[in-house]
Amino acid sequence: MNVLQYMLQNRVEVLELTGEHLWLVGISTLLAVLVGVPLGILIARRQWLNKPILGTANIVQTIPSLALFGFLLPAPWIGERADRLVILALMLYALLPLIRNTYTGIRGVDPAVVEAARGMGMTENQVLWQVQLPLAASVILAGVRVAVVLSVGVATIAAAIGAGGLGEYIFRGLAMVNNQLILAGAIPAAGLALLADVGLGWVERRISPKTAG
């Protein structure tokens, strides 16, 4: 029996696990955007916060995912359920690309454009929402793309602490020394990562041509 046949036979379970996987990645990415973009804006405005915030996000990124799950386990409310814990961990991993790209995107806006905006009497909020964020949008979206692709991979490890997702197959396959089972988890996970990469890349190109040149 080859992998595709196995997946077809167990399509309900494959879809279910893919759904769980998407949910873990989707919610954590959403939370990371809600936290990371404002932090990126903050460090673009207050340079002295740049090092501490990017440094912290960098350190978080270096913690191995299993260790991070372990660290978060004793946390109240979070530690009570595996999916909460995984979502928090995925969010923390996604923060670095989001903060960094938001910061880079905003700093990369032509200073003459920002100065013209201020000089014409736009308030700081108008400069942010009407000029800086739209012009940084494609760079920020590139950060989202990196974060999503990263999260799809890390989320397979969620199964190690019982949070479900496609990692279930991978861990089951590892335990049973069954390559087909491993592939039944790995192939859809790789597919998700590719799909997210291509899809978000397309959106990115859609919004950037107007600003180019």
């Binding site: 003459a112 000089g119 009497g121 012009l135």
Partner: peptide, 19 residues
């Protein structure tokens, strides 16, 4: 903000909003 809206400003790099 009022001051700047009382004053028109033209710069060399133009600073038009590309979007």
């Amino acid at each position: 903000i009022r001051l700047r809206r009382t004053i028109g400003y033209v710069i060399q790099e133009v600073g038009l909003f590309p979007h």
